[in-house]
Simulated assay, not measured.
Amino acid sequence: MTVDSSLVDRIVHGVLQQLRTPGPFAAKPVPPAAAPLSAPAPRPAADCRIGQPVITARLIEELVPKTATGVVVAQRAVVTPAALDVVRARKLTIRREAAAAPETSPPARTLTVIVRNTPAVERLGRQNRWRRELLGCPDDAAALAISTLSRGDADRVVIFAAQSHRAACLANRNSAVKAAAIASFDDLRSVLEQLRVNVLCVDPTGRTDFELTRIIDLFEKPRPVRSKAE
């Protein structure tokens, strides 16, 4: 019997096609198993703060959790011997809070009112140490000094004016103002020993910026509070 080779090729090709095509009962691929969830990492132990002035054993037992590694107490807290025994038994550390830094007084707030402008006063203004106001007469300067001190916008006022005595006299009409006109650095030192001046009137004519800076620095220097008896 003669076998047609082309027929054989078609039969083989059909069989291979059937083998490549999955049937209705073919096994389905199994999805990969999900990775197991890892347990959350434990939180790091922290110190426990107790703010009471007296630290007792009972306070430590009630307030300090088992996961804590230390106890923080106030700077001046008293720790009883029994509390120290509990601290040692639980292998805790105990430390005191750092002492608060001492409060520093804010820098002096000074307003400079310029009626008489000179090269020295101009150079002084470039230091940007003081707030400045330019006015046209000593009367306006005295009025500004009164309003500024009354509102609390400055601690002291320096008036640069040729008519320094007039400016001081007008400013002293207000009870909140104690003004003085000075002629030199030594004059200011003498005035400050006797009066608590908050308005300083200076004629800047012929003075150097170094001299004016010394005067203002001395005027801003904190002074001890004088008693009424003095």
Rank of each mutant, 00 (worst) to 15 (best):
M1N: 08
T2W: 10
S5Y: 02
L7Y: 05
V8T: 08
L16P: 03
Q18R: 15
T21D: 10
T21Y: 06
G23H: 10
G23R: 10
P24K: 12
A27Y: 06
V30C: 08
P31A: 15
P32E: 06
A33R: 12
A34W: 05
A35N: 06
A35F: 06
S38H: 13
S38P: 07
S38Y: 07
A39G: 09
A41W: 06
D47I: 03
Q52D: 12
V54F: 04
L63W: 03
P65K: 12
K66C: 06
K66H: 14
T67G: 08
A68I: 12
T69S: 07
Q75M: 07
Q75D: 11
Q75W: 09
D85H: 05
R88E: 11
I94T: 02
R96Q: 03
E97W: 01
A100T: 06
V113W: 03
I114E: 09
A120L: 09
R123T: 08
R123N: 14
Q127D: 09
C137M: 11
P138W: 02
D140T: 14
D140P: 01
L144V: 03
A145S: 10
T148K: 00
T148P: 01
D153A: 14
V157Y: 12
V157S: 15
V158S: 08
A167H: 00
A168R: 12
R173I: 00
S175M: 13
A179C: 05
A183I: 08
S184T: 13
F185W: 10
L192V: 01
E193P: 02
E193R: 11
R196W: 00
R196A: 07
F210R: 12
L212D: 01
L212H: 02
I215W: 05
L218A: 15
K221W: 08
K221D: 15
P224G: 14
V225M: 14
V225G: 06
